[in-house]
Write a protein that binds this DNA or RNA. Sequence first.
DNA 1: GCGGCGTTGACAACCCGGTGACAATCGCGC
DNA 2: GCGCGATTGTCACCGGGTTGTCAACGCCGC
Lengths: 240, 240
Amino acid sequence: MTKARVLVIEDEEALRLALVDALRSEGFDVLEAADGERGLELALSEAPELVLLDLMLPKRDGFSVLRAIREDRLQSAVIVLSARGEEWDRIQGFEFGADDYVVKPFSTRELFGRMRAVLQRIEGKAPGLPVEAGKVTIGECVVDFSAYTFERKGARAGLSRKELELLRFLLDHEGQVLDRMRIQDAVWGRGNESTPRTVDMHVLKLRRKLEREPDHPRHILTVHGVGYRFSRTGEDARRS
Amino acid sequence: MTKARVLVIEDEEALRLALVDALRSEGFDVLEAADGERGLELALSEAPELVLLDLMLPKRDGFSVLRAIREDRLQSAVIVLSARGEEWDRIQGFEFGADDYVVKPFSTRELFGRMRAVLQRIEGKAPGLPVEAGKVTIGECVVDFSAYTFERKGARAGLSRKELELLRFLLDHEGQVLDRMRIQDAVWGRGNESTPRTVDMHVLKLRRKLEREPDHPRHILTVHGVGYRFSRTGEDARRS
DNA sequence: GCGGCGTTGACAACCCGGTGACAATCGCGC
DNA sequence: GCGCGATTGTCACCGGGTTGTCAACGCCGC
């Protein structure tokens, strides 16, 4: 991948500068815009590989920019940077159209992880692979993070917002053991008041939906006294 | 993980001293700085594993220090210590680029929790190295410390927390003869009440999992009348 | 109000660490 | 080489903490 071009559309000065710096030092070719109008202009004229798009913008909001980009049949991948909560319903209602989204506040690590995943997907799509943006296969299930759907053996099943966010987090940190606090911070947000047991509850629900045998989970594994560990391909829960 | 180095950049005397003390007694190798300039200097020259960074600093504020650190491609993890009260949105920009952040006032408990998480993440995921970090080969087995998992000739099994901690200690002190008390202090914590025999029990369990022939251990060797000795490559337990 | 979702408390099921008992082994003096 | 006490290996079991699961509640949008 030779120096991908990235467009940052973000009005908040400090964050934009930090993003631009970080991306440049990672070797990206960076464009920036502080409002929606200018952002759309640049997106259309420069056709960058990737757009980082804030939703709350002066002059033209993120949704409108995103729609315009998509209507123009632009190939750019779009990662939305949204503040927690508020926009969820709109995002979901709109079919979204973004390739991924990151909830503020986020870390460089997290953002780069998502960017890498998205770019890889885009790149891999060229040879005509049936890899569709945002779709991930887990055992006999398919999750589509850009359309917010979930199906198991072809049959459509619903995942709620929290379930989806939890699943996404697990997926992003596959293989690592994640303690409840860390999961809670990521999925529920910092400074959250709820019991760590809430995490268990949602793990339970997820297991019921995506495990073949919820009683013998092969994907969401519990590590006693520590937390949970996710495996996409599935593991035998063999004792020892 | 042997004695991680931590740099504390904090101008407020009392807090800095308290932090330094607490960290030292936790076994960290601690560096300290009372202003941003000195902090950056130390960060660049010493390249510690972890930096605890206050945002409001004399001479050079935390944001600037963080950017300088990142521009230097330093691998250090950074945890930002921010005061509550500043508007969240502005802080967001500052915190971007950090690996984690804690809001003042915080408890040492919370801080240590975050530090552990961050260090573990860093250790287990060097972005440049496709080589699986955080994994250690012992004879014909591979132990993955970040997944609490254990693999022997393709077959995977889990390790419990104590087993993992014991194994980690043995690994860190390979070749040395360790008496039970030393092991107990390290793994179970000082001032622990349990019988020295508890150590034996866990050695037994570990042997069963990682030795090819648990009856003739090649890695966890017993030194009669003294304690145990660990060998990563494996030794013949042949008598003479 | 109804239904879905998120959360909580309660309780059951389970796992793991630790213990005591006993067998096996070792070291040492003979 | 033998025997004995000390040390270590091993087993079964218990108790406490952790996790799984259910039912109920509050909240919100319809």
